[in-house]
């Protein structure tokens, strides 16, 4: 599997990596190899689509299982590299199983990337529909689609500028003075980042009203939660810290300082309680993983 990652080190062409030269595209081997593999896949898909329905489920489950086994093997097989990256235990043909991990990681990232298009399709469906039918709020759909287009255009222009800087066709100084770079700067840094920060900071208000409503001495549970929250909170406010600050920290009475109590709660109760809840969640995930790999989960396999 070394062939997919060692691009810079090994310019020696092989079956998997064909040379890319300055010759016209149509005369190059790699171009036809790409076209060929696309056509081949289309043929495979064509036949897959004709598969009788009772074979569909096993095929889909097989894909899930094989994909899962990749990482299971990675977990079980001995590690072939030492800390400095030298191969000490070769796995197959002198190469190492771990070397395949970045390739597979890229594979899933690429598929994820392609699937974002589905989401974009959904946005188009909802908002173009609203725009063309001039339904209520069509103007806002227009704003959404327009700002998306602006961001994509500036983003792509800025990206090609970055490429030019990397090729040393222009200096970064020149690049930063173009309309594209300034436009991107404006829509990304000045607008999007500030919107992000503003939405994030709205949480302060919601947390205030939620605490006001929820922290009532109605039940034992609510009372416990309120009391701990307030004690921990106080251990961070200088005014409250000052109340017990006169107690010497390194003597027995130091245990009654607000900050000591707050820390004790965080360490001694909070940590193990959350650890227990986390362990349960971990077991749930493990069970889910087993069910998914074996095709027992309804949502994944074909019914």
């Amino acid at each position: 599997m070394n062939w997919l990652i060692a691009q810079v080190e090994s310019p020696e062409p092989g079956f998997w990596g064909l040379p890319h030269t300055d010759a016209p595209l149509l005369t190059q081997g790699f171009f036809w190899a790409i076209v060929g593999s696309l056509v081949g896949m289309v043929v495979v898909i064509f036949f897959l689509a004709r598969v009788p329905s009772n074979f569909r489920r096993p095929i889909a489950v097989a894909f899930v299982f094989l994909a899962g086994m990749f990482y299971v093997l990675e977990w079980v097989l001995p590690r072939g590299k030492d800390m400095s990256g030298e191969t000490v235990i070769p796995f197959l043909f002198g190469s190492n199983y771990e070397d395949a991990v970045p390739v597979v990681a890229n594979l899933s990232q690429i598929i994820f990337g392609l699937l974002l298009a589905l989401g974009i399709l959904s946005i188009f469906r909802v908002h173009f529909g609203r725009l063309f039918r001039l339904e209520k709020d069509w103007f806002f759909s227009f704003v959404l689609l327009g700002s998306m287009a602006v961001m994509i255009v500036f983003g792509l222009m800025n990206w090609s500028l970055d490429q030019a800087v990397a090729r040393e066709a222009i200096t970064s100084e020149q690049a930063s003075r173009t309309i594209a770079a300034q436009g991107f700067q404006f829509v990304f840094f000045d607008m999007l980042q500030n919107l992000d920060a503003a939405m994030f900071s709205l949480i302060a208000f919601f947390i205030l009203s939620a605490a006001y409503r929820a922290f009532r001495i109605k039940s034992i549970e609510a009372t416990i939660m309120m009391a701990t929250a307030l004690v921990v909170l106080m251990s961070f406010i200088p005014i409250f810290l000052a109340i017990t600050n006169w107690l010497p920290a390194d003597q027995f009475v130091g245990n009654f300082r607000v900050d000591t109590i707050g820390d004790w709660i965080l360490d001694t109760i909070n940590a193990p309680a959350l650890r227990a809840i986390d362990l349960g969640l971990g077991l749930g995930i493990l069970a889910m993983a087993i069910r998914i790999m074996l095709g027992l989960e309804r949502g994944v396999s074909v019914d």
Binding site: I59, G68, W75, M288
Partner: peptide, 20 residues
């Protein structure tokens, strides 16, 4: 059902990682 294949690959890879 063909859409299950890419989705299955993603989910399978996720599931395999959970043991480690």
């Amino acid at each position: 059902w063909l859409s299950r294949i890419p989705i299955g690959i993603i989910l399978g890879l996720w599931a395999g990682q959970q043991f480690n």
